[in-house]
Structure formats: structure tokens, C-alpha cells
Write a protein that binds this DNA or RNA. Structure first.
Lengths: 182, 182
DNA sequence: CGGGACATATGCCGGACCGATATATGCCGG
DNA sequence: CCGGCATATATCGGTCCGGCATATGTCCCG
């Protein structure tokens, strides 16, 4: 799954600027399974325009910089459907925190406790964001299906961390090496 | 979280070759939250050796190519602990399948059904692999904590897909455009 | 009322990383 | 005996991230 396809998927639902696409990847209801940064979105949009899969129109705004609004073309819709029909690529899950957690026994307890709390807070925030997306009900049935899958998984993840984090903290080194701290 | 740190984390537990590190990332009990390919592992190991964080010894084998076995140094252990104490980076979850699922309504039912089944099979396999890692009990307490977190999440993911995939399939286009296939 | 933080918006660049490929070797099955 | 597979190291092209530069306007705080 490349950034090109991601851009097409967002433009499929309606026109948007590069900036908005990025925001949807970070804050949108589907931000829990797609991601992309400016450094890849803008070049991708430029290439899509070269290939005729999207068109752009520059819009002047008072009080804000001019923006380039992209729309998908019929050719783009076809290309997107073909892309989805082709090989998809595997799901990716990477967790620096879980790597950290595996070594709890060599780390000072204060640090493990702080990180575990951060991790829980992050999960609570992500979970709540998805519950709100579900409550809004602006999305179609397929979107709702995807959101419900996310809700089910996040609910369990949050609950598991909440009720088991103290076990992880107990595993950490009781006394932090005083001199070697930083 | 970079590949350097990942290599150090594996070598922390015992010596290994680049090939073995790669295999642990793909098949090992922790493969569900770390990943790396040859293209990044070999350069990373070379750089770690330059920096004195690991040392290597070449071992001739009969019937197989010679291998370079890497071991972590005291300096490497210290650097690894410092790395874990520093900023960690966010968890990443990316799912081409969920992006695909969002557009079930524009895709032929056969395709959606096939992909949903593949996705379920993949989850069953991943989940089982983790249950086996749990049953083996060769790991320490922190590893077990991490595995249990994965088990809890995977159990729910698998169950949710199993009991809700038919809803997604129902959303797909009933009659596949016969001419536009491929 | 000046200045800094923040939001909108586009774009580039260095470096990290993936996936494919090359190279070498020996095993095993058809 | 030949092709495919497993072991093992290494490189290379291309994709992508994160930080930075640039431009402009708002809003709040001192």
C-alpha cells in the first residue's frame, strides 16, 4: 500500500488539498490504520496529476496562503479500483513500547512506570477518538464496519494495559542506578 | 525505534548472525511487533561493529556458507539501555486490508469474500503462533507479559473478524462487472 | 502594540528503511 | 542431473518519514 493509493482513497470521497489529506491521516477516523507525511504526500499528488488520475485547481484565500485543491478523475477512480483488486501488502504493527517492555527487568522502575502510564493515556485517547467517530455516524456502512473493528480491538488493548501494567512495573529494577542516571 | 536498537535487543539475549536476526524478526515470538529486512540489518550490524557496540567472529561450516556470529559488548549493553531510556517513538499500525474494506461497496463480492477469508486465516495463524510461544514458556517474565498482551488483542481481533466478516461481504457489489474484470 | 506561538499551506532534502536481486554452497526430490 | 529450497552475506534502487524552509495571517499575553 503506497501513498499514491492512500491519496486516491481520500480523493475518492471528495476533493481535498495536500494539507487536508495529511490531517485526515493524523486526526481522521481512519488515522488508526493509515499514515503519511508531507514529504510523501506532495510528491505523490504531483505524480498523480502528471498521470491524469487527479486534477488540481488553485484557490486564493483571504488571510491564508493559496491552496491547491485536488479532485479525482474517472481515470483515477478506475486506477484506484484496480489497485484495490491487486496484491494488497501485509498489515504492519510495530511497537517500540513493547520492545521497551521486554527489557523492563533491566530498567529503573520510575522509567517503566512513567512509560506504562504514557502508553495507557495514549490508548485511552485513541480509543476515545474512535468512539467519537462511531457516535458521529457520518460515515457509510463499510466505514462503520472498519471503525467497529478498531473499537473492539482498542477496547481490549486499553483494558488489558489498565489491569496488567502494574505487573510490568513490578518486574522493573527496584533501585535505579543512582550515578548512571543520564 | 531503529534497526540498530532492534539488533542490540536481540544480541542482548545471546549471539546471533544477521540471518538469524532476520528470522527472529519474521518468525520469532516477538515478530508481531518488530520487523526488519536484510537491507537494513546487515548495514546496521556493520555500523555497530565499527562503533564497538558488537564484535563478530567468522565461523566456517561444512555444507553451508561461512557465517558471521555477532555478540554484544559491555559498551553495547550500556548503549542499548540508554537508547531505551531515551525517546521511544510511537506505535505504528498500518492495514492495507482495512483501507480495502472501507471500499467494499465498490468492489465485487467474490474479491471481498476472498480477501476477508485470507485476512481471517492470517489472524488465526498469527494468533496460534503466539499461543505456542506462550505455551513454550522459555521466556522470562517481561517477555511473557508482552506475549500475553498480544494474545489478548489477537484473540479479540480474530473473534471479531470471524463473527463480522459476513457483514462486510454483504456490503460488496453483488454482481461483478463482467467485462471490466482485469 | 510588539512579539511569539499557532494554524494554514506548499515544497525539498537527508537519511532510514524495504524489497528485490546477486553471489555462493550444498541438500533433496523428481 | 537439474531445479528448487535453505543457509548466508551483501548491495542497490526506490519509497517514505521527519525536519526544515518559506509565506501569511490570527490571537493572546505581557
Amino acid at each position: 500500500m503506497n501513498v499514491r493509493t492512500l491519496c486516491l482513497s481520500i480523493l475518492y470521497e471528495g476533493e481535498a488539498t495536500g494539507y487536508e489529506i495529511r490531517r485526515l491521516c493524523v486526526e481522521g477516523e481512519c488515522s488508526y490504520f493509515v499514515e503519511a507525511s508531507f514529504g510523501s504526500i506532495y510528491p505523490a499528488l504531483a505524480r498523480l496529476e502528471d498521470e491524469g488520475l487527479v486534477v488540481s485547481r488553485t484557490e486564493q484565500q483571504s488571510g491564508k496562503p493559496a491552496k491547491k485543491v485536488y479532485s479525482i478523475t474517472d481515470q483515477g477512480r478506475t486506477a484506484f479500483a484496480e489497485e484495490l483488486a491487486g496484491p494488497l501488502g501485509e498489515d504492519v504493527f510495530r511497537s517500540p513500547f513493547l520492545l521497551f517492555a521486554r527489557f523492563a527487568h533491566i530498567l529503573p522502575r520510575d522509567l517503566v512506570e512513567a512509560r506504562a502510564n504514557e502508553y495507557l493515556e495514549k490508548h485511552i485517547a485513541d480509543h476515545r477518538r474512535l468512539e467519537e467517530a462511531f457516535a458521529e455516524r457520518g460515515s457509510n456502512a463499510a466505514d462503520t464496519w472498519v471503525i467497529n473493528y478498531g473499537r473492539a480491538v482498542m477496547e481490549v488493548a486499553e483494558r488489558h494495559i489498565r489491569s496488567h501494567m502494574h505487573e510490568l512495573i513490578t518486574l522493573a529494577r527496584a533501585e535505579p542506578k543512582k550515578d548512571a542516571a543520564e
